[in-house]
């Protein structure tokens, strides 16, 4: 089946124009000033205008370039969701649960993003990485990180 528009370029154009307009709208609020004495909004306003124009050019191109197979957007949802959520989970769990638990979550959840996921291997990998993290970051680089769940050592 042949797609009838250049999806990639159209989406790019949309992003450029949207970002450009957002930049311009907010820049006006930051005070533009004059060319000789620019306010904080002047330069970002100009950038926003340029980006909008570029977006319009890409949009017109997306109508004139004949679309083919490569112009269609295709993606797999699993890697996006699993990788991003594993990073978020790390961020959320680090301070309350400590480094060891959050690294464990990160490695196990992110490993699931691969099509070749294998629980046994992921567990071994987690162990190896925990050891590596301990040697490199705690012992060698002496980073100040919360190691264990906060409630276990709440004597402070």
């Amino acid at each position: 089946m042949k797609p009838d528009i250049h999806q990639k370029n159209l989406a790019t154009a949309f992003i450029f124009i949207a970002l450009g307009i957002v930049a311009m709208v907010f820049s006006v609020a930051y005070k533009l000033g004059t060319a000789a004495n620019m306010g904080p909004g002047y330069f970002p306003f100009a950038l926003g205008a340029i980006l909008t124009v570029l977006g319009i050019i890409v949009a017109t191109q997306s109508l004139s370039i004949p679309p083919d197979k490569s112009s269609r957007i295709s993606f797999k949802i699993k890697p996006v969701l699993m990788i991003l959520s594993s990073v978020f989970i790390f961020g959320l769990s680090l301070e309350p649960l400590g480094l060891f638990a959050s690294v464990m979550f990160l490695v196990i959840f992110s490993s699931m993003a691969s099509d070749e996921f294998n629980l046994k291997e992921a567990v071994i990998n987690t162990m190896a990485l925990l050891l590596m993290v301990f040697i490199i970051f705690i012992y060698f680089l002496e980073f100040q990180l919360p190691l264990w769940p906060g409630f276990m050592f709440s004597h402070s």
């Binding site: 990073v87 978020f88 961020g91 680090l94 990160l106 490695v107 992110s110 490993s111 294998n118 970051f137």
Partner: peptide
């Protein structure tokens, strides 16, 4: 499949240590 979780671990710990807060981790995602 063994390599990329290690990359993520380095990323996340490094990000936290920049300002000692978790905001940067979410921003990076």
């Amino acid at each position: 499949r063994v390599l990329y979780p290690a990359i993520l671990v380095f990323c996340c710990i490094g990000l936290y240590s920049v300002n000692n807060n978790t905001f940067d981790i979410g921003l990076t995602a």
